[in-house]
C-alpha cells in the first residue's frame, strides 16, 4: 500500500471523489433548481415543469403589490451590510493588533467574543431588544440591528485577524523600525500590505454575514424589515415563483461579493508571486 498522496490512486480516492461530488451536488443542486424556476413563465408554478421563460417574477418583485416591500428591504439591507463591513474591518483589524500584546482583560474580551459566536441568535436578539427598551429607544435597523450584526461578524473578523497576524513575524516590524520607519509608516508600508488579503477576507465575512443575517435581526431591526426577514415573511405569504426570483437576486448579490473578494485576493497573490 502506498499513501494516498503518492503513487497510483488508491481505491479510496474514487470512493471519496464520488462522495465529494454528491456532496457538492447536494450543496448547490437545489439552489440552481431555484435559479432556473425563478425564470418561470407567467402561468408557471413553484415546481417543474417550466411553462415558458420570462422575467415576470422579477418584475413582480418590485411591483410591491403582492410581495410586500422588497425594494425597501433592499434599500436597508445593502447599506447596513456595507456599514457592517467597514466597521468589522476597522474594529477587528485594530483589535487584532492589540491582541498581539498581552494586556489586562485580553482573556475576558476574547472569550466574550467567542461566546458571542456561540450564543443562540434568538437569545441575543431578545437581550438586545430588552436593552433597547431599558434605554428607552426603539429598535432600529441602523442601531440595534447594526449592533446585532456586529455581534455576529466581529468574532469571525477577530479570528481571521488572529490567523493572519499569527503568521506575521514581528521581525518585519523590527526591521522597519531599524530602518528608521515611524510606527505609522511601519503600519502603512509594511504591515497593511502584508495583511491586506486577510482584510479582504474580513470584509467578505462582514458584508455577506450581515447581508444574510436572520436570527439576530429578527427582533432587533424594528418595524422596517431587512431583506432576510422580508424573505422569511414571504415564505408564508407568497406562493408564486416571485419568491425564487428574490432568492436568485439576493444570491446573485452574494455571489458578486464573494467573487469580488476571492478574485481580488487571488489577483494580489498572483501579482506578488509574479514579482518575485
Amino acid at each position: 500500500m502506498s499513501l494516498p498522496s503518492q503513487g497510483r490512486r488508491p481505491w479510496t480516492f474514487y470512493v471519496l471523489s464520488v462522495m465529494f461530488t454528491l456532496f457538492v451536488l447536494f450543496l448547490y443542486g437545489p439552489m440552481f433548481i431555484m435559479f432556473i424556476l425563478s425564470f418561470q413563465g407567467p402561468t408557471g408554478g413553484l415546481v417543474f415543469p417550466m411553462r415558458g421563460f420570462s422575467f415576470t417574477w422579477f418584475e413582480a418583485l418590485f411591483g410591491q403589490a403582492r410581495t410586500g416591500d422588497v425594494g425597501g428591504a433592499f434599500s436597508r439591507s445593502l447599506p447596513l451590510a456595507l456599514i457592517v463591513m467597514v466597521l468589522t474591518v476597522l474594529i477587528s483589524v485594530t483589535a487584532g493588533f492589540a491582541f498581539r500584546r498581552r494586556f489586562v482583560g485580553s482573556g475576558f474580551l476574547f472569550y466574550t467574543a467567542v461566546a458571542s459566536l456561540i450564543v443562540p441568535g434568538l437569545v441575543l436578539s431578545i437581550g438586545i431588544l430588552v436593552t433597547a427598551r431599558f434605554l428607552g429607544i426603539p429598535a432600529r435597523w441602523w442601531f440595534t440591528g447594526l449592533g446585532a450584526h456586529l455581534s455576529w461578524t466581529l468574532p469571525f473578523g477577530l479570528l481571521i485577524m488572529f490567523a493572519i497576524l499569527g503568521r506575521l513575524s514581528p521581525s518585519y516590524e523590527e526591521a522597519a523600525y531599524d530602518m528608521g520607519a515611524t510606527r505609522w509608516q511601519t503600519v502603512r508600508h509594511v504591515v497593511i500590505p502584508i495583511v491586506f488579503p486577510g482584510m479582504i477576507a474580513v470584509a467578505l465575512f462582514g458584508f455577506t454575514l450581515s447581508y444574510d443575517e436572520f436570527p439576530r435581526s429578527w427582533l432587533t431591526v424594528g418595524s422596517l424589515n431587512t431583506l432576510p426577514i422580508e424573505i422569511w415573511t414571504m415564505t408564508t405569504n407568497v406562493t408564486s415563483p416571485a419568491l425564487y426570483a428574490l432568492g436568485t437576486v439576493t444570491s446573485a448579490i452574494s455571489f458578486v461579493a464573494i467573487g469580488l473578494a476571492i478574485g481580488s485576493i487571488a489577483y494580489i497573490q498572483h501579482r506578488r508571486s509574479k514579482r518575485t
Partner: peptide, 23 residues
Amino acid sequence: TYLQVTPLFLVLLLFVIVPLALV
C-alpha cells in the same frame, strides 16, 4: 493597546454583555 480594543469592547459590552445580563 487599550485604545485599539475600545471599539471592540464597546460593541461587545452594549450588544453582548449587557443584553445577556438583562435577559
